[in-house]
């Protein structure tokens, strides 16, 4: 990559402008700005949003200077990314209906999908180990009031 602008810096600037723009725009359109005596709920986020836009422009402008950093950026694979980001969500979705124990098992299994060294046996062992450990610590040790098996499973007679 030998482009004359530093792509990374331009992206960084754009990100600031987008976040700042979002908050500033939301503030003026949905919230009262208020008066000096009684500053409204929109005033502060609007002002900070504008500052962030300005900073974003500054970052972007500096990026136009030719940059020497030509090293390619390395990213995490899509599969890894999805597995890692999904696992807390999966826990959140399953913990109430299924209960603590099944939720931990599923979360651990989803997480292990992210690694490229994982094999099925190791994943299962890890999930089982984590489940036993967490149940021991949180349910028995700390007396967490969360049911081990949720209503969805209880219906099937667990």
């Amino acid at each position: 990559m030998s482009s004359r602008v530093n792509v990374k810096e331009v992206t960084a600037g754009l990100l600031c402008i987008v976040i700042g723009g979002f908050f500033a725009l939301q503030s003026v359109t949905t919230l009262p700005i208020g008066s000096a005596r009684q500053i409204g709920p929109g005033y502060f986020p609007f002002a900070v949003g504008l500052i962030l836009i300005a900073l974003g422009i500054l970052i972007g402008l500096r990026a136009v200077q030719p940059a020497e950093s030509s090293d390619r950026m390395q990213f995490v694979s899509v599969r890894t990314m999805l597995a890692i980001l999904a696992s807390p969500v999966v826990f959140g979705l399953s913990v109430r209906p299924l209960g603590l124990a099944p939720a931990i098992v599923i979360t651990a299994l989803v997480a292990t999908l992210a690694g490229n060294r994982a094999n099925v046996v190791q994943s299962l062992l890890l999930a089982a180990g984590l489940t036993i450990f967490c149940v021991a610590v949180f349910s028995y040790g700390l007396g967490l009031s969360l049911p081990l098996f949720g209503p969805l499973l209880a219906r099937f007679g667990v």
Binding site: A101, P102, A127, A128, T131, I132, V135, F149
Partner: peptide, 18 residues
């Protein structure tokens, strides 16, 4: 599915405890 199997295994272990 292995996922389901494992869930069941763990479920039973703790069900006995609980």
């Amino acid at each position: 599915h292995p996922l389901g199997l494992c869930g069941l295994l763990a479920a039973f272990t703790v069900a006995v405890l609980a």
